[in-house]
Design a protein around this nucleic acid. Sequence first.
DNA 1: ATTGAGAGCCAC
DNA 2: AAACGTGGCTCTCAAT
Length: 717
Amino acid sequence: MTFKLTDISLNKPDESTKEAVKSAEKRKKSADESIEEAWERILAMKNSDKDTERLLEVKAAMEAGEIGREPVQEGKRQGKFSKAEALRLYKVLSDKRRDDVLRKMVEDTPDNYWLITDKAKLDEFLSILSEEEIIVFDVETTGPDIWKDYLVGHVITAVEADIHAYIPTKHNVDQPQLNHGYVIEKLRPIYENEAVKKIAHNAKYDIHILANEGIDVRGAVWDTLEAMRMLNENEPTFALKPLVSKYLRIPSLSYGDLFGKKGFHEVDLDVALAYAAKDGDVTLKLYEFQRKHLAKMPEVLRYYETVEIPLIKVIVDMERLGYDIDLEYADQYGKELKAKIDRLHAEIVEGLGDINLNSPTQLKPAIEKAIGRTIENTDAKKTLKPLAREFPIIKTLLEYREVMKLYSTYINALPELINEKTGKLHTVFNQNGAKTGRMSSGGGGVNLQNQPQEARRLFVAPPGYVILGGDWSQQEYRALTYFSQEPRLIENYEQGNDLYATVASEVFDKPIEECGDGSVYRQQAKTIMLAVAYGTGARTLAMQLGKSQEEARKFLKSFDERFPVVAKWIEQNREFVQRNGFVWMDKKQRKRRLPDARNRDSDFWYTSVYTQSTNAIIQGSSAIQTKATMVELDKLCKRKTAEGNGEWRLWCVVHDEALLLVPETITEQDIRDFEDVMLNTYKFGNIPNKCDIEIQRRWGESITVEEFLSGKPIPEL
DNA sequence: ATTGAGAGCCAC
DNA sequence: AAACGTGGCTCTCAAT
């Protein structure tokens, strides 16, 4: 097609006249445009996917007579039907549907849903509860924030009696309710009674909220959220409603669908009853469903009940304790970093131009221009590092990145996250945040598990206390050794040798003396071990070691030859997951389901599920060791506190590292007791555990036990 | 203003 | 030919 300049001359008088005529016709037409024509016109417009979806929904609802057009304002005639009106109607439609659902919920409220708003009814319910061995509990609140939101009502299910009660106390509605404190005191004996077994969905939240009311929940024996993670860690969501819809086939709309952003305290009591009591009802049904299925995996059930369940309260306590932040240190360090950032920024901008250095999209072309060649991305490790030697500006940029990350994510950010109420920094631990069973940490605030050394320095013990920390030495490789039963590795650990030196000596065929601390062989063996555990290929390993792929391949091959039993175990895992679609963690206490392993194209000789199968066993089993030990550490803390020489608390756990907050007057015996729990709570069969213990006031600024016992003072803040 | 995806990078 | 496991947060940038 040819293109003539004249084709785009816009201001030809004849054309504009035509347009004017056309639009006049259009106006005339629109006055008597039929609704069908209007829809055709609107739907032909450039609409986003979401708008199209909404428009079609409105169209269908209008055609079904569910809604009509907006009312005409007095004295005006109805204008033409516009996209804007259609989208306004969408909101009208959603609100109407929501109201319909809520009305229906109220109408259909079962007789065994009890709304308790007077003392007599509460007493009647309490007398029913006194006969119950197990109950469901759930708190309704103003929102999800355990520090800002507060309790507005209690849901309790009397299981045997089959009654689901809602006891509102703080709804902002014009309906009578029982006094908040009165209900707390009436329910306290139940909540705090160990003998009254309790079921909840996401019990950690309810326990937190009740703790805010001064109630110490005891006897929690089942959490339907954590149980579901045992049954299927791949579930897309662990929210109650979707699980109930999916597994019990009870249609359940989410809180947001029903109430939007409204807090539960704004909900009328009849609606509140229908919604809240149903939570107790379906949680109970989900519990029964889960029990039936977990019974088929007795080791998983036992692990769940003896480790995961007690762990909930251990985590609650840890989250509530929080962290003291050295603000003075943070401020001073932050200023230093900021000055450095400014200096580096100025230097880089001189070479690259005045761009946003934090924007990869702006950075990439600027770098390409500056160095005169194209780059794939601005990834520090993969792309920029190899260029740093040749181009000083890249080196400076990498330095900028590093300092910027430290400043913006950690040093400058942490003080901002301090909780106003407690004056401390709090994290949220997700008990099974990783599909392997590891915990994760964060929850909109601080992630305790990825603090770099520099940032750990901001975390300090309160006056009079010290941080007693222990980390399992080579936790995952000990697990690997146990599972594979590789004789050379077992021997290494039985004799208390240095693993990396042993591996280096074998892989590089060097005398052990040349593979000790500080040797390049030992360092490389460390990387190779990691590659084995993570399933890293030769290409990546080559990059990490700064060697050719050829050499990296040789190293991996050499490892397989020298530690053939490990290689065989990895191969077994591959076969197992291919056959079964899952792997077992230690003692069948937990599964990692990798269903993709079963329906793979046979042409693929590698898929990530195979590396995952081995890694999941190692990582997941290590997590079991950590969690089982956490439960015992909590008991140790309670025992020590009871001795009366000051309070002991579990402070933080980072995968293979456990830190306690203990009185600064601790004794050698105290430390030995701590070590004993770390070493002996959970063992991988015949492999001995090893634990390195350190004492500190500032996280990471520690002295060893030996130093401590020989009288070396713990560094002051 | 809020949200979500992608890039990038911190930890074990 | 294909190959690094598990997370979470900050920043940018585009979309709503």
